[in-house]
Nucleic acid binder design. Structure first.
Length: 428
RNA sequence: GUGGCUGUAGCUCAACGGCAGAGCGCCACACUGUGGAUGUGGAUGUUGUGGGUUCGAAACCCAUCAGCCACCCCA
């Protein structure tokens, strides 16, 4: 490729084939969200940097956001996530909305990171949130939406699993072990890294953070305790609700789930591929009861999750669950142009067919018929029309079924009906 | 921000110090009113860029740019 200005690093071009996949994903997400009564909404792509300061992770804001100063001198960012925008929208109209409200969204986001497998700088994200309900059953419904999505696309619990924990439960444990509040963010990321480090290194790292040997032993025991959720009334109710929703097979308690974002306050969850070959979480979410108050609204409980399009697409691809029969070309009909003399007649016929509700491509210039038929094949047309001298003088057109090769000559007014017959698969 | 790998035709890649190639795709013809198949022929390159070593560099060295992968972090 010569002298083509390259795309921006970490962005993806969506050729029609890829766009068809993205649209399929979007349609699937919409069906699932709507089946739970969620309403679609959208926020601006540009937000002030202030919206994210102190509410999202520090690295997310300081290192990973696309920030620029606009012509008026304001600090603007390309949104790195949606939840703060959601909090803003709700806070602005808090008195006029009907709670609990259920909202979903699918749109583009940007994070300035080094691209690699499963991570791009521009990505699409599905957000599903419920605001105004603080019950564990609300949390369960939120998890149920994404478990239902997994079911809908054909993923099984052998392939993907939703891991759940609760920050309140973790905090109670850290209280018990006398871990100072100031150390907890560091301890959280230490817990998060357990799988990635060798056991000795992980313990040494814990001692560096200032944990005592007794605390490390206690925390290790806690992380291995698969029954720990029984000590949390919220977790007990959560799993009961998940069971009632018929989705227990997709959900599992895991005390090592902590989540990076600061605003989570209760239930937290992530989804992972079971085999672990794709070492990147598919999505993350949880309860964030303080965020509304933090952006200036009245306190309002909330729960939600976000799923990026990149990792889920990798997973679906790996398990052969991306649809292969997506319609890339919308027009099943091609009108050929016999010669320059008859080009306008072809245009008239094509226009007439469109008025009758058909999607029609007309070849844009006179060319040899073999070339035009070859083109019809390539674009996946199912019917080709020929308007040559023989047909034209009688006001007729040749209508050819490209899959069978059969051709009928009909009056031009009857062409639409003949085409419909072929498209409907009715033998002529 | 740190580290590793890779840049050759439109695409996938070969050539690994001695004439820059193959497959696929593309174009033409066989087939001047009908596509998919087949056959024959044809076009296509500053070997990412800049410098160096050498009689000779796509190959070796340095720099640079880009892509991929991993760390970090996260959707």
């Amino acid at each position: 490729m010569k002298n083509v200005i390259p795309p921006v690093k970490g962005t993806r071009d969506f050729y029609p084939e890829q766009m068809a996949v993205r649209t399929w994903l979007y349609n699937t997400l919409r069906q699932v969200a709507e089946s739970f009564g969620y309403q679609e909404w959208e926020a601006p792509i540009l937000e002030t940097l202030d919206l994210y300061a102190a509410k999202s992770g520090e690295e997310l804001v300081k290192e990973q956001s696309y920030v620029f100063t606009d012509r008026g001198g304001d600090q603007i960012t390309l949104r790195p996530e949606l939840t703060p925008s959601l909090a803003r929208l709700v806070a602005q109209k808090q008195g006029q909305l009907t709670f609990p409200l259920r909202w979903w969204s699918f749109g583009p986001f940007w994070r300035y990171e080094r691209p690699q497998k499963g991570r791009t700088r521009e990505f699409f994200q599905w957000n599903v949130d419920m605001l105004g309900a603080d019950s564990p059953e609300a949390d369960a419904e939120n998890v149920a939406v994404l478990a239902t999505f997994f079911e809908r696309v054909g993923l099984t619990p052998e392939q993907v699993i939703i891991l759940v924990s609760d920050r309140r439960l973790m905090d109670a444990q850290l209280d018990r072990f006398d871990v100072p509040k100031a150390m907890r963010p560091a301890v959280s990321s230490w817990i998060d890294r357990r799988e990635k480090l060798a056991p000795e290194d992980w313990e040494a790292y814990g001692r560096e953070l200032g944990l005592t040997n007794a605390q490390i032993a206690n925390l290790k025991a806690m992380l291995g305790d698969k029954e720990l959720w029984r000590q949390s009334p919220e977790q007990v109710r959560f799993y009961r609700a998940i069971e009632a929703l018929g989705l227990s097979h997709f959900v599992q308690f895991d005390p090592s789930i902590v989540r990076g974002l600061l605003y989570y306050t209760g239930t937290v969850f992530e989804a992972w591929e079971v085999g672990g070959e794709i070492r990147r979480s598919i999505l993350g979410g949880g309860r964030y009861d303080n965020l509304l108050a933090d952006v200036g609204g009245d306190p309002l409980p909330a729960v939600g999750f976000a799923m990026g399009d990149v990792v889920i697409t990798l997973i679906l691809e790996k398990y052969g669950l991306l649809p292969t029969d997506l319609q890339v070309n919308p027009a099943p009909v091609l009108v050929t142009v016999f010669d320059e003399e008859r080009q306008l007649a072809s245009l008239r016929l094509a226009a007439d067919l469109r008025r009758k509700g058909l999607n029609v491509v007309c070849y844009p210039e006179a060319a040899k018929l073999p070339k035009q038929f070859k083109y019809a094949d390539r674009i996946g047309a199912r019917v080709a029309l020929v308007l040559g001298p023989d047909e034209a003088e009688k006001g007729q057109a040749a209508v050819k079924d490209l899959s069978s090769g059969e051709q009928v000559i009909v009056q031009q007014e009857a062409a639409a009906a003949a085409i419909r017959k072929i498209l409907a698969g009715v033998p002529s």
